[in-house]
Design a protein around this nucleic acid. Structure first.
Lengths: 87, 87
DNA sequence: TTGTGACTTAGAGTCCGTT
DNA sequence: CAACGGACTCTAAGTCACA
């Protein structure tokens, strides 16, 4: 399992868990919409900087986006759905 | 704290814990010698593929190289020192 | 709303060397 | 053994048009 596929899956899981479209996520992270699409299709080896920016928007740590454990990531996604913005 | 600095520190900690030189690590991971040096000095934003290959050589998961928790990484480093190659 | 191709450019990553 | 520089190549980064 390529690391870029792990990122692709986690990205999509967490993005959908937050109810965001690729466009919304892209805008929040200051990244182009089509680039998000590319990442979710494992086209590129993202840099850790991009991973970090996406993680911030998705309310997780950068390291969690690279976690191959899908279940753990989905649990994380559900938490994020419940723990709404607040503050 | 920039993500590339986190990687830089973790890289150096784990590499030294394994008693490897930059050159040895570079060679084992199929990466250029000077590039490892650059990464440890936070010059570049590595791609997740490079992070993954380095993690493999260092006997850790890719996600652990991006862990900002220095103590956790050092504990990991000590474990790796004890649990020698074997096999 | 997303996928895809075509494109440009900034920077990742390599290879030579010296200090 | 590591830091550092220059010159190079290749791909990620970023944008646009269109299905």
């Amino acid at each position: 399992m390529e690391i870029r596929e792990v990122l692709a899956r986690n990205l999509r899981i967490l993005r959908q868990a937050k109810g965001l479209s690729q466009e919304e996520l892209a805008h929040s992270a200051g990244i182009d919409r089509t680039y998000i699409s590319s990442l979710e299709r494992s086209i590129y080896n993202a840099s850790i900087d991009v991973v970090d920016r996406l993680a911030t928007v998705l309310d997780v740590k950068a390291m969690q986006l690279l976690d191959p454990d899908t279940d753990a990531v989905m649990r994380l996604g559900r938490e994020q759905t419940i723990k709404t913005p607040s503050k």
